[in-house]
């Protein structure tokens, strides 16, 4: 009987969170002193869109790598529903020896999809990112924005419940980025995928996320979080987006300023209010 209760409890936690981080700490090598990430607790609900925000050195990318299972945690635990998460990088990292469709088909193949279905599935995914005409193109023949859309299609091909995005639009021009914000929002609504989106761009975070989580730097900890209750066909120019972005930016600046002060007065921070 106890067993069934345990199982039920486990099933409930699995359905309630897509990603659960408990006390996640990361040190590199034999690093002593401040770790990169220190005791991160975070729960992301299925289908939620969470933006992780922070200045450089807060370990945002490190955190995604940990969740993706590319690096081991030093302590703490990470649960990902379905056991794996798809990861997308700032650079598209499409394999240059494969066509756009080939890249997607490889992702499907490594998931064990049979050959006949790979083709139609890759076509469907390319259509989803509106690149049905680019199936035979190679990465170098595509623009930066198109490359990221193929990378997005490839990530969706992994059929993971969780999509991790590491500043995927940071290298794009503003117009393309705007369009991809719209596209990502539409895809998220359509597929119901859980998104954990890392950025250092406050407006981007407010434009996209249902929740914005700010990490402090050195060590990376969850500093604050905001719910974004602005209905979703948002635009980055919207007044309420700008207003919240301003509030978050102020907080981010306070967080960054704190580091300068600690550096200057060496331990005198205990006296400061």
């Amino acid at each position: 009987m106890t067993l069934t209760i345990d199982e039920a409890a486990q099933a409930r936690t699995l359905t309630e969170t897509a990603v659960r981080l408990t006390g996640v700490t990361k040190r590199f090598g034999k690093q002593t002193g401040t770790p990169v990430l220190d005791g991160i607790d975070l729960a992301v609900a299925p289908g939620e869109f969470v933006c992780l925000l922070g200045a450089s050195g807060c370990g945002k990318s490190t955190l995604l790598n940990l969740i993706a299972g590319l690096d081991p945690v030093s302590s703490g635990s990470i649960e990902v529903s379905g056991g794996r998460a798809a990861l997308m990088f700032q650079e598209s990292a499409l394999f240059p020896w494969l066509t756009a469709a080939g890249n997607i088909e490889l992702a499907l193949r490594l998931r064990g999809v049979d050959k006949a279905r790979r083709r139609t599935e890759a076509e469907r995914l390319l259509r989803l990112v509106r690149l049905e005409g680019a199936a035979k193109k190679r990465a170098h023949e595509l623009s930066g924005g198109m490359r990221q859309r193929v990378a997005l299609a490839r990530a969706l091909a992994q059929q993971a419940a969780v999509l991790l995005m590491d500043e995927p639009f940071a290298a794009l021009d503003a117009i393309t980025r705007d369009v991809l914000h719209g596209e990502l929002t539409a895809l998220w609504q359509e597929t119901g995928v859980t998104v954990l989106f890392v950025t250092h761009n406050v407006r981007e975070a407010v434009r996209l996320g249902q929740r914005v989580v700010m990490l402090s730097s050195r060590p990376g900890r969850v500093a604050r979080e905001w719910r974004v209750d602005i209905p979703q066909p948002r635009r980055i120019e919207d007044a309420d987006v700008a207003e919240l972005a301003r509030e978050i930016t102020d907080e981010l600046h306070r967080e960054i300023t704190r580091h300068g002060r600690v550096g200057v007065d060496k331990g005198a921070s205990g006296h400061a209010s």
Binding site: A68, L70, R84, A86, L87, F89, E91, A93, F95, L106, A107, L110, R111, R154, Q158
Partner: peptide, 12 residues
């Protein structure tokens, strides 16, 4: 190295 990381994430 990023290709190897992508490969691992894709399940290779």
């Amino acid at each position: 190295p990023i290709y190897l990381r992508v490969g691992r994430n894709l399940g290779a």
